[in-house]
Design a protein around this nucleic acid. Structure first.
Lengths: 140, 140
DNA sequence: ATCCTTATTGCAATAAGTTACAATAAAAAG
DNA sequence: CTTTTTATTGTAACTTATTGCAATAAGGAT
């Protein structure tokens, strides 16, 4: 896997930044979780010895460096995960179930928008809200 | 205009909720701003006498009732505006310029996703990030 | 291995946001 | 108009997030 914590750590060095135990700890937590976590969850899971400002600042840093991806969920919170394969999310606003949308599924749409607006679209990890088939059925 | 503060206020009553001066004050601030505002900005602009919990709770309430629309911007903050015509935003991550995307421009894309996923997509006000033509030119 | 440089961290103070619950007031009924 | 009901608000305590700055330690140089 090209996105192990070790690999990401190496990228921090290559970009000319310092690899600290604090940054390593955050990457490890995200790796072991294997899913989106919000800031407080990350802070809670991390081994004692890191302060909140450090954790939050480093999350911002890792996002800026494209080593961690951030998305906003239905509840308005930001959630973080290691930047593995690009994807988006579709979340049910009733039961909260989430499904991944492959980035390719949105590519054509993004291309069309680039043509019509002149913008270059980049690094959008979006979470769309909807109602899943299950809850839709119950609702009817 | 079908979305004046007065009209929205009337809808609150029609839905069986109470029209309080606090709710009216929030709608008025959003109306007079005529643009997205984040929570702290709204709280700052509002006439004295409203408390933070009241402002924030009512923003949540108004969003739930579809009278106010919320979107997440590039900086991770949530921004609010009166629910006028449905649209989305495209924001330049370099200079911050924003442009509106008409909801119709995304309709075909949403329809396709509904077919392939089985989800019903509802009330997504999304903000896509990109680089505007201007900044793209300077960058090259 | 030791010394430098300065990016990064921790601390302390502050600001922003949340929660639980008692007090208030909007709207309906008499 | 007065009373009643209960949705809504304000208060106070608490949790989470941010900021400025001095102390620390990562990584390059000697």
């Amino acid at each position: 896997m090209t996105c192990s914590p070790q690999h990401l750590a190496e990228q921090i060095r290559q970009k000319g930044f310092r690899l600290t135990r604090q940054r390593m700890a955050i990457l490890t937590v995200l790796d072991e979780a294997g899913q989106h976590l919000c800031r407080t969850e990350i802070y809670a899971r991390i081994a004692p010895g890191l302060t909140e400002p450090t954790v939050y600042r480093n999350l911002d840093f890792l996002v800026e460096q494209d080593l961690v991806r951030v998305t906003h969920t239905g509840n308005g919170r930001l959630e973080y995960e290691l930047a593995r394969h690009p994807h988006h999310h579709l979340q049910c606003r009733v039961c909260g179930a989430k499904m991944e949308l492959d980035a390719n599924a949105l590519q054509a749409f993004f291309n069309g928008l680039e043509n019509s607006t002149g913008y270059r679209l980049s690094e959008n990890h979006i979470t769309l809200m909807g109602v899943c088939p299950n809850c839709k059925f119950k609702g009817d």
